[in-house]
């Protein structure tokens, strides 16, 4: 499999804090790869290591097949990035900020109009960045990252500061980039519901360690749907489920059965509940969201290694 990003045993500590702890990241070319983790989990540090902004204590990084340490210019030649904040020059206009990039990347100035169009910032292009809202700055930073048709786009929390319409636009753009231009998008976020809608591969990071990486659908397939039964007789329903050796807990309107339960067992449980006099108003299977899954995974002290999907 072609990899846009590959890291081997990447480590970085700040004092006694191990910010990145032996990360082996494999980002397939052409994917929209969500890099997910809570605040302070090591996402931004990892991105800085990927871009060579900080040095690794151990391990190596390859970007588009080139080593970031020994072939830096080759590795970064076709990479667009936004790291943490949109890093722009407030004394310049949006167009002037992009003009700098055309000079540095040796691009035709027509590229400015193209990227402004993509992020819908043409109207404000000749205003100074100082007067831009955070959302506009984020869009301008994205426009700059898109200059020169990068093969790899690294976006650190790209929806920060965007309004709902801006978030939807960003999501649409990110989803279409691999198909339109073959760009690999590596996007970090703690907004899991957002990531669920736009990524096809994910890596979950907590305390500098990867908990999972692989296809989003394989991650979701590892999880168990919960059976939610709405009833007013919660105590009786819980006792009935427990007597059938099922794990269950009280929910807002009834009980939630978390044990694996097949169709027959489901029918047996509902029948038993009716027989003991529970008024069952609804029973449904609820697939866990990425967010719930993430919370479950990060609650585990140690993730079993068999949950790491093989990528290569």
């Amino acid at each position: 499999m072609d990899l846009a990003i590959r890291t081997d045993g990447l480590r970085r500590a700040f004092g006694s804090v191990q910010a990145v702890n032996g990360i082996d990241l494999h980002v397939p070319t052409g994917s929209v790869f969500g890099f997910l983790g809570p605040n302070g989990s090591g996402k931004t540090t990892t991105i800085r290591l990927l871009l060579g902004l900080i040095r690794a204590d151990a391990g190596s990084v390859w970007i588009n097949g080139a080593d970031i340490c020994t072939q830096r210019s080759v590795a970064l030649a076709k990479v667009g990035a936004i790291v943490e904040n949109p890093a722009l020059y407030p004394n310049l206009t949006g167009r002037e900020v992009l003009r700098i990039s055309t000079v540095l990347l040796k691009l035709d100035t027509s590229e400015i109009a193209r990227v402004l169009e993509i992020v819908d910032l043409r109207q404000a292009a000749d205003r100074r960045v100082r007067g831009y809202s955070l959302g506009m700055r984020q869009r301008l930073a994205l426009a700059r990252a898109l200059m020169g048709h990068p093969k790899l786009l690294m976006l650190d929390e790209p929806t920060n500061g965007l309004d709902p319409a801006g978030i939807a636009d960003m999501r649409r753009l990110i989803k279409t980039l691999p198909e339109q231009s073959g760009t690999t998008v590596f996007v970090s976020s703690h907004q899991l519901s957002e990531m669920e809608q736009m990524t096809d591969h994910v890596a979950l990071i907590k305390s500098g360690r990867l908990l999972f990486q692989g296809r989003l659908d394989s991650l979701m397939a590892q999880t168990q749907a919960a059976l939610v039964i709405d009833t007013s007789d919660i105590e009786v329903a819980l006792a009935t489920a427990t007597s059938m050796k099922l794990d269950a807990k009280a929910g807002p309107n009834g009980i939630v059965v978390t044990s694996p339960i097949d169709v027959k067992a489901r029918a047996r449980l509902i029948t038993a509940l009716v027989e003991v006099g529970c008024s069952v108003s609804q029973a449904r299977l609820v697939e866990p969201s990425l967010e719930q899954l993430f919370l479950t995974l990060t609650a585990d002290a140690q993730m079993p290694t068999d949950r790491m999907e093989t990528m290569s």
Binding site: R48, L51, G52, L53, R72, S73, V74, A75, L76, A77, V79, A81, V83, E84, N85, A87, L88, Y89, P90, L104, L105, R144
Partner: peptide, 12 residues
């Protein structure tokens, strides 16, 4: 403007 993260991630 914390622009180092852009300037130093250029292919130079």
């Amino acid at each position: 403007s914390r622009a180092w993260s852009y300037t130093l991630a250029l292919p130079y």
